[in-house]
Design a protein around this nucleic acid. Sequence first.
DNA 1: AGTATATGATAGTATTACTATTAAATTTGC
DNA 2: GCAAATTTAATAGTAATACTATCATATACT
Lengths: 224, 224
Amino acid sequence: MKRLLQTIKIEVNRKTYVKDPESSDLGKRIVEHSILMIHEIGFDSFTFKKLGSSIGSNESSIYRYFENKHKLLLYLTSWYWGWQEYQFVFATNSIADPSEKLRKAIEVISKPVVLDDSFTHINEVLLNDIIINEYSKSYLTKEVDTENKEGYFEIYKRMVLRISEMIQGVDPNYPYPSSLASTVLEGSLHQYFLTQHFPSLTNCNKKVTPTHYFTHLVFNSLNK
Amino acid sequence: MKRLLQTIKIEVNRKTYVKDPESSDLGKRIVEHSILMIHEIGFDSFTFKKLGSSIGSNESSIYRYFENKHKLLLYLTSWYWGWQEYQFVFATNSIADPSEKLRKAIEVISKPVVLDDSFTHINEVLLNDIIINEYSKSYLTKEVDTENKEGYFEIYKRMVLRISEMIQGVDPNYPYPSSLASTVLEGSLHQYFLTQHFPSLTNCNKKVTPTHYFTHLVFNSLNK
DNA sequence: AGTATATGATAGTATTACTATTAAATTTGC
DNA sequence: GCAAATTTAATAGTAATACTATCATATACT
């Protein structure tokens, strides 16, 4: 995948980091290798100490970029959703027909992720896998309400809102546009998780992707 | 809510515990207060040491019942799904008409939980809240595949299968019965979570329950 | 060359997630 | 009713985690 606009930078809530990891080489290596390591050993076993030794740096240096591993996860997830939103808007913006627009939107959010050459230090395929397996942990906390107020989930919420508006564009009388939008976004991650770990609980697989399932689900709910 | 069969005991995978907590007074107090405490401070902050002092017992005594807090969570979630399955089967078993059966099934799994007098040491309302906020953590781990093989998620999987079969009973040609079933079960928890913490991402609230939304969603997907 | 800034190395603290041991209390079997 | 078995409580100890603080060194900037 090639980016059209060379100057784009995914904007992430500044509160997720102490020092912008994009601002230095070490910062980028922290992000790059945190993705590799979380993907490999899982978020629960991941520590700054392990990350430090894997990049030949120091635990204390990582703390200068991120307060703790929870904030790092918020950074990674926000980056991911920002990146997804960019592709989402890019792919749907020029489509006039509401149904085609929504169809494209569902496709973009539920299709398998491919590498984006534009951000060399971020492996989007592995990051997507982290989102599938760890995203819920970023909001299933006792601090979710304060963190929500502080804006850590803005991009994700905006994505749901965009989808919700497209649903309303197709059927203004549909009574559950936000619920359906959140179901597609959350449910898509969940269906991918099930194909990986609980294949008997899903009909999705390599051939039948969540895109097929959710396209069918959404358009049967709406009056066209 | 009153139970009809006095002798029922919810069967939970024996591997979740070292010693059956139902077999002693201390065991029941451990379960009872773990629910209260996890509900209050969240699973992440919950420790056996804190639980011990809250029930006037000792950390080491709790380890004689549960290997660790993850296993305790597996016990609580398995108990919850076992309890839900009991109500599910009881409510739907006698219904002959496939559509009515499925309608009832969706209602049972997505309606708000009420207290069950039959299990005095378990507060099902608080436990339901724990399931909403913590269930994903029981399977979003690196050990999910081995634990799945060991049967820790059997009851949940059986629930999805039951719903899936009911969906097929209504429309044998529907191509995604398992995905739709897992979407309803998982999505229902998620919609409750959203009403609590992200009300702008859902149309569900006190009046419009997830039951309305999912009933609409499912029956519009199927050919009747 | 001198100063600011970034990074690295080391040490230290409180908490967690246990394990092991021993003592006390309670239950059970006869 | 007493001895034996079992359960629970108390204490101590270990390795790892999640940090904070301090100081040294390297690099970059003016």
